[in-house]
């Protein structure tokens, strides 16, 4: 958050740089079951973000001392490809990746029925192939679908979306320019029944704006939820009809 927008106007006549309105999401594409080795997988595009998520497990825990006798542990690895950003990133996890992995795992864990699989692990791997603001939210959305694709019992799908502030106005799903030069970024993740499993914020928001941003991000999540649901239904209806034909 630099707060200094270098004299760019981000919203003109209610329209943003990429032609969206303030309450509009970027185009979303979700594909289910894109990897054959993984137990569940999902490819997702949110605007210019391209992420792929894989789920392995429930499977045996290595190293063994990490296992829990009463439940499965959940691991989440958020990783950015070195070519995913403008300037080449050094491969491997940095401090940001560690933090995002932690909060993303904590965003998904509340809906996973881990007590069904004691002494095992559910591994979630998210690779960011192209980044354009909102990779953590895209990663969580993809991971949630991949978990469902892997057949992991869950109370519901987690959906994640960010709101931001540019030109003093709260906007939905900020893209790169709005994120870099905007005044705030607030990603959330929610359950289908509205509990919040992830919330982070940086930048500059009054208490009123904070509430506006949370509201707006929730509306965004509602829309993404429908797309996630449809992607899963399409995939499994297709499989069902293929099975019937055979």
């Amino acid at each position: 958050m630099q707060g200094n927008n270098g004299n760019i106007t981000f919203i003109r006549d209610g329209v943003r740089l990429d032609g969206r309105r303030v309450d509009e999401l970027r185009p979303i594409k979700i594909e289910v079951g894109v990897l054959s080795r993984a137990d569940g997988s999902c490819y997702m595009e949110m605007g210019d973000n391209k992420v792929v998520a894989a789920v392995y497990g429930p499977r045996e825990v290595h190293p063994r001392h990490l296992q829990e006798v009463s439940r499965a542990i959940v691991r989440y690895r958020y990783n950015m490809a070195s070519f995913s950003v403008e300037e080449r990133r050094r491969p491997g996890p940095d401090r940001r990746s560690y933090e995002l992995s932690k909060v993303s795992r904590e965003a998904l864990e509340p809906v996973i029925l881990t007590s069904y699989f004691p002494r095992s692990v559910i591994d979630i791997f998210v690779e960011v192939l192209q980044a354009d603001a909102g990779t953590r939210t895209a990663g969580i959305n993809a991971a949630s679908v991949a978990l469902a694709d892997a057949g992991i019992p869950m109370k519901g799908l987690i959906t994640s979306c960010a709101a931001g502030k540019v030109d003093g106005q709260v906007v939905l799903d900020p893209m790169k320019e709005e994120d870099n030069f905007g005044q705030a970024d607030l990603p959330i993740a929610i359950t289908p029944w509205g509990d919040i499993t992830l919330i982070q914020m940086d930048g500059d928001l009054s208490r009123d704006e904070f509430r506006q941003a949370v509201e707006l991000a929730r509306i965004g999540c509602g829309k993404i939820y429908e797309i996630q649901r449809k992607a899963l239904l399409d995939r499994y209806c297709q499989m069902e009809s293929a099975a019937q034909e055979a």
Binding site: V103, E109, T197, D202, R207
Partner: peptide, 10 residues
């Protein structure tokens, strides 16, 4: 005004 928020925990 608010400049940072972080939820943590499962």
């Amino acid at each position: 005004t608010i400049c940072g928020v972080q939820k943590s925990g499962t």
